[in-house]
Design a protein around this nucleic acid. Structure first.
Lengths: 108, 108
DNA sequence: CTGACAGTTAGCCCTTGCGCTAAGTATCGG
DNA sequence: CCGATACTTAGCGCAAGGGCTAACTGTCAG
């Protein structure tokens, strides 16, 4: 069930605000590296690193046509996060009793 | 809607495998720092840093009673991630057309 | 009151991450 | 063919992250 390495990469990729903004932006549709970069206050080479990070962790795919590289969001990859959250819930469900017990103890 | 700084902290905290394991572990119920640390191959001081990171980003709460510090999962904080994912979906929904159009173009 | 126990603090090391500049490659438009 | 465009590559600088040891503080058990 969902490789640990993979999910780690996804979380690492999401840990940066710039990369999250790129993901959001790509939610509107495929965009070229240049157009994307124009929305950020950093240089192109720096920006490219983020693109590579996103791609190598599977969050986006990119295709180069001519001299333009177009980025596309890979929606299914975000489902790994969803899955992780779901697993968390699965764990604590039915265990709420213990937590409540603890809280009560603290308050007394 | 959900402070950017806050969500950033949450993602940063989740970017480390050790910290995610701590969260999972705490899903089973409150646990002392010592008991938690025993499950990881790192030293206590190193482990404490993770605990502090998790706490300062609101993912867990801790209480010290006597010489024992107990950690509790803060479930609601994870909902920020849920919210972020939901927003993503909201964005790309109704925009799927564009994406499909692109894919088709690529394949032709 | 003394030793063991559970954390804490301080400080160091080393790698990684993110940003930059400078220079290079590969299209594309004319 | 030439200049502009759109990345790419190379290499540097610096701060932050994660790990470690050594030494300290505050409890608790006896």
């Amino acid at each position: 069930m969902a490789n640990h390495q993979e999910i780690d990469g996804v979380f690492v990729a999401l840990a940066d605000p710039t990369r999250r903004r790129v993901i959001r932006r790509l939610g509107h549709g495929p965009t070229s590296v240049g157009d994307l970069a124009a929305e950020f206050p950093i240089t192109l080479p720096s920006f490219m690193k983020h693109v590579r990070t996103l791609e190598s962790n599977g969050l986006i795919r990119t295709v180069k046509t001519g001299r333009v590289r177009t980025c596309v969001l890979n929606r299914e990859r975000l489902e790994l996060v969803d899955g992780w959250l779901a697993e968390q819930r699965r764990i604590w469900e039915g265990r709420t009793d213990r937590l409540e017990q603890f809280v009560v103890e603290e308050e007394s």
